[in-house]
Amino acid sequence: MTSAIHVVGEVLATKRAGAYRHLTIAAPGIPERFRAGNFVAVSVGDDLLARRPLWIHRVKETGAYGPTLDVVVQPRGPGSTRLAELPVGARLPVTGPLGRPFALPREPVSCVLVGEGYAAAPLFPLAARLRERGCPVTLVLAADDEAHLLSALEARRSARSVSVVTRDGSVGARGDVTSQVDAVLERADADVVYAAGPTATLAAVAAAAERRGAWSQVALETPMACGTGLCQGCPVPVVAEDGVTRRVRACVDGPVIRGDRVHWGELG
């Protein structure tokens, strides 16, 4: 496990992109330790005690600040709304990098990545790592509509093939990504499948991977109170080798977990 640190970071830049807010954060020590699939836990105020976990979307060099990290926030409840309204220069307590990252294949095998909404964020750095290893990468970006789609243009830098699916058809193919996964895996002749998005999408992708005999990894968004493994507030039912279901902690034993291990029926 990568060793996490807790720092008071600083918001260096903000950008609106469709329904989302992208934040660039200086959090010295965290970008240096980052691996794709890690997240950070941020605090949004002393009156809101639970941390807000956020996927690390990108790590980049920003001149004087050294490496920084980018996150994508979808404002909805009180915490994410506050985050989306943070001005440049705001201070933000950040803990990270947290969680088990995506495991990478040793051989240059065919990989399909399926991401829905803001949750596709960790697949961008994953695609870059896979490409470095010579893996052909097929990325499927899905969303309700164009406003909730992460940039396909940017994705094309790391993935050999990028396709877009929206529920309302505002851009790309119209429909539900879950009904198209089997065809995508078939076309790409996928050996490994990665998924990030709502639970229903993850379950469908894991099932499609299993039908093909492909190996799958899913990035779960189980509600978390601490994100650091302290509270046992994020149970995920997993089926172990011995067939027994156990509850592991999404934040430290995940959030990336083998799709065939998750007991989807029991996941709240």
């Binding site: 002393d46 005690l49 109170a225 046992q232 507030g233 149970p235 156990r246 996941l267 709240g268």
Partner: peptide, 22 residues
């Protein structure tokens, strides 16, 4: 095994929790 999800909820300046002694 502990209690079912969700186990923790946020209230103003507080956390309500039912981990069930996992």
């Amino acid at each position: 095994a502990g209690g079912p999800s969700p186990r923790v909820a946020e209230t103003p300046s507080g956390l309500v929790h039912a981990v069930g002694h996992q």
